[in-house]
Simulated scan of single mutants.
Amino acid sequence: MSDPDSIVRSILGKLNREVVPKVRRNAQKMEEFKERFRKAIEKSDSGYPKQFVHCGSAFEGLAVKEETDFDIVMTLGKPFEGANFTPRRHPSGFFTLKWKPHLPSKSVCDSEGVVNVSHLKEDLFTRIVNAIDAVKVPGQEIRRSKQLVAVTVEIKYDSGEEISIDLVPTIVFRSWEDCPDLRPPTELPECLRDYIDTLKDNGSPIMFFSLTVPNADKYQNSDQLSSPSFGLLEKTFLSSEVNLRDMVRLVKLKAHQQDWKRLYKFQSFFAKRIAVKHCDELKTKGVWEGYRAILKYLDQEVEKEFIEDYFIINQVAYKWKPERAVQFREEIARALREDPSNILSKM
């Protein structure tokens, strides 16, 4: 086999030359829409959203294909800010948000002060859709659809180009300690603890609470269920750890080439969480060696037939059926036997 590091540099160079510029051009189109949308929703006099935060692969330097979705997290303003809530763990493993007792007024909650996040989401989705419909640009066909946690905007240009944007309303928290059952900082890799401290010192968002959860109808009090996500924390971490970012990018590229998302419900955060969890070890490795290490750790997760969230204690992020887990492990084993030239040849 040729020098793997040399081939890896060729792979990353090809991504940087052929994919990254197109993603950046699409990001500029996304920004143009976002500004028009922001002005439209501010006219609704809703008091929210407070801030737009860019998350996801396009903003983490992890894009491996031109058709990359853009995730815009919309953080809510007062009174829907994390400092006004006490998160509590629900038997489902998700969370509920209870208004703190000192607040003079409470909104969209039950008699005990627990927020009905589903009601809040529907109200927000209505405002978001109305604001999208107010954006009219010649030469653009703008479509929107309500998803589980986001309103998806698809823009088709007269040139034939298309972009997709997910607008995700959330409640922002700025302290790790505010949420129960998160992995204690002492159990996190040292490099990650430093990033959390930096975000906290700057008053930056550390986690975003969703306004619904997957399969919520299966659980009691489903309208109250929420769950934290850590997109900005991962973005901050990966943007500062270039080698780890490239390891994850290789895993994403392999998953894209082999269609793992469709076949095995692979999501990029699987690789990101593994990289975060093992970052102290991975930082000692080269990119190809680190890529293989992430695949080996992924195989260990699939062997258990589920992958843990990692940041949240005893939270399953995804479960595989036994036969699908066996098939996925066979795919991972094949990937581990390949050298990087196999990836390069399919680009």
Rank of each mutant, 00 (worst) to 15 (best):
L124G: 08
Y264P: 06
Q267G: 09
R249Q: 08
V276R: 09
L188H: 00
G93P: 03
R245T: 02
R127E: 15
Y310K: 03
F237G: 07
K50W: 07
G56C: 05
S107W: 14
A63L: 03
P322G: 01
M1A: 12
K136F: 06
P104Q: 07
E112L: 15
S222T: 11
K39N: 09
I332N: 13
K272A: 05
L344H: 12
P138W: 00
K346Q: 13
S204Q: 13
L232E: 15
V115T: 09
L103V: 06
Q257A: 04
D280I: 10
L253K: 03
D223K: 11
L253N: 02
L76F: 00
F95Q: 03
I7K: 06
V114C: 09
E234K: 01
V172T: 14
R292T: 00
N221R: 13
A150M: 12
E31G: 10
F306P: 06
I7S: 07
M74E: 05
I163V: 02
Q267M: 14
L120N: 11
F237Y: 04
D181E: 13
F37K: 03
F52K: 08
P101D: 11
R17Q: 14
W176P: 04
P49Y: 04
L238G: 00
N16F: 03
A150E: 15
N84Y: 09
E289H: 06
E18P: 09
R292F: 02
D259Q: 09
G77I: 00
R144I: 10
A27H: 13
D166K: 02
R193E: 10
Y318A: 04
K272I: 11
T198N: 14
R337I: 01
K146H: 09
Y310R: 09
V20Q: 14
S10V: 10
K146Y: 02
V114R: 09
M347T: 08
L120G: 04
W99R: 05
K14I: 06
I196G: 12
L238E: 04
E81T: 04
F208G: 10
A275W: 07
C109L: 06
G290I: 00
G93D: 02
S227P: 07
H278E: 14
W260D: 08
S105P: 12
P4V: 00
Q315R: 15
K34R: 12
V326R: 14
N26C: 04
I294S: 08
T186I: 15
F306N: 11
N130L: 14
W99P: 09
V117Q: 03
K261L: 08
G139S: 10
M247K: 03
D3Y: 07
R193M: 07
E35N: 05
I41W: 08
A58S: 04
P189A: 00
V153Q: 07
E122L: 09
T126I: 03
L250Q: 01
P184W: 05
F311K: 04
Q28K: 13
C191D: 15
Q315P: 11
L344W: 10
F125M: 08
F59A: 12
F269N: 13
A271M: 05
M1V: 08
P214A: 02
A317G: 13
Y219R: 03
V213H: 01
L148F: 13
V168R: 12
Y297C: 14
Y264G: 01
K39G: 11
S240K: 14
R273S: 15
P87V: 02
P21Y: 00
L124Q: 05
D201K: 15
L233R: 00
R9P: 03
G47M: 02
A325G: 05
F208L: 13
L62D: 07
T86D: 15
S6R: 12
P185D: 08
R337N: 14
